[in-house]
C-alpha cells in the first residue's frame, strides 16, 4: 500500500465516482468530493440523503459499487491510525457493563496492539481527553448512567485520544443541550486550529454559517461543496431539500419538522 503512488495528496479527503447501494436503491450516486486539510466542514442534506453512508464508505465500513476514496492521498485502509470516527451515539447499547474511562481507552486499542493491555500512560491519555470535554469527574461512572449529551462527549473523547489528522463525526450535535453543543464545538475549533480536518454530519441549518468554514450539501448526489458562503445559497438548499424547506429571507432557514432518520 505504501508503495502505491499518492493520488490527490493535497486533499485530506478525496472521493471520486463513489456509488453505494442498499438493495436496488442508490444511497450515494456518483459522488465526487474534495475536502482540503485544516477546514471544519459540515455535511448537510435531508434525511436519507446518504450522509452517514458517505462517512461509512470513507471509513471503509461499506463496500462501494463503484469509485474510490483517498485520505491524504492513500486508501483508507492504510490510514486507519490518522482517522478518528465518532459514530451516532445510538449505534451502541449504553447498558454495556463498563466505565467512561474504559470506553475512552478503546480509542487507543488500535495503537496498543495485539496481546497488550492498556497501561498507566494510556489511562493518563484518556483522562486528558475527558478533561478536554469537561468529563474528567465522570471517569469511573457506569456508561449506563450518562445523559445523552454526556454519552456524546464520551464518544468524542474516544476519538480524541486517537490524535488523528482527520475526524469524521456523525451528528455529534443531535439532541444535545446548548452547554454540550458549546463544549463540543469549542473543542472541534481547537482541533481545526491545530491544523486537523474536521468533517461533521450536521442537521441544524441555522448554525451552519456560525460553526463551519467549509460545507458539502448533498442529497444522494453532491449538490454543492466549498466555502460555506459559496455553497449555502437558497438555490442549493432548494435543490437539496426541495419542498421540505420554508425559506426565510436571505438564507436563514428552518428545515421541515421531520427529524428522525432510519439507521442505514
Amino acid at each position: 500500500m505504501q508503495d502505491q503512488p499518492l493520488h490527490e495528496p493535497q486533499f485530506a479527503l478525496h472521493v471520486e465516482d463513489l456509488t453505494v447501494t442498499y438493495g436496488a436503491q442508490p444511497a450515494l450516486w456518483d459522488i465526487d468530493l474534495d475536502i482540503p486539510p485544516g477546514v471544519m466542514a459540515a455535511v448537510v442534506g435531508p434525511n436519507g440523503s446518504g450522509k452517514s453512508t458517505l462517512l461509512k464508505s470513507v471509513l471503509g465500513l461499506l463496500r462501494p459499487v463503484a469509485g474510490h476514496v483517498r485520505l491524504f492521498g492513500r486508501p483508507s485502509g492504510a490510514m486507519r491510525a490518522r482517522v478518528g470516527y465518532v459514530p451516532q451515539r445510538t449505534a451502541v447499547d449504553w447498558d454495556f457493563p463498563t466505565t467512561v474511562l474504559d470506553v475512552v481507552m478503546m480509542g487507543l486499542y488500535g495503537r496498543i496492539g495485539w496481546l497488550r493491555r492498556p497501561g498507566a500512560a494510556h489511562r493518563a491519555q484518556a483522562m486528558a481527553a475527558l478533561a478536554e470535554l469537561g468529563m474528567q469527574d465522570y471517569a469511573d461512572r457506569q456508561i449506563s448512567q450518562l445523559s445523552g449529551g454526556q454519552q456524546q462527549r464520551v464518544f468524542i473523547a474516544r476519538a480524541l485520544v486517537q490524535e488523528a489528522d482527520l475526524y469524521l463525526l456523525d451528528e455529534p450535535l443531535a439532541a444535545v443541550d446548548a452547554m454540550t453543543e458549546r463544549v463540543i464545538m469549542d473543542l472541534l475549533k481547537r482541533l481545526r486550529d491545530q491544523g486537523r480536518t474536521i468533517v461533521v454530519v450536521h442537521h441544524d441549518l441555522t448554525t451552519v454559517q456560525r460553526y463551519f468554514d467549509w460545507m458539502v450539501m448533498m442529497n444522494v448526489r453532491i449538490i454543492g461543496q466549498g466555502p460555506v458562503a459559496e455553497v449555502f445559497t437558497a438555490e442549493n438548499l432548494r435543490a437539496a431539500y426541495g419542498g421540505q424547506l420554508a425559506l426565510i429571507e436571505g438564507g436563514a432557514v428552518t428545515p421541515a419538522p421531520a427529524r428522525t432518520e432510519p439507521p442505514p
Binding site: G60, A81, V83, A91, M106, Y109, I112, W114, R117
Partner: peptide, 22 residues
C-alpha cells in the same frame, strides 16, 4: 485472555472496531 480488549470492543461497538482496523 489473549484477545480480551479486542473482544470487548467488538462486542460493544463493532463499527468503531472496524474503523480502527480490527
Amino acid at each position: 485472555a489473549a484477545l480480551w480488549k479486542e473482544v470487548k470492543l467488538v462486542t460493544f461497538d463493532p463499527d468503531y472496531a472496524r474503523a480502527l482496523g480490527l
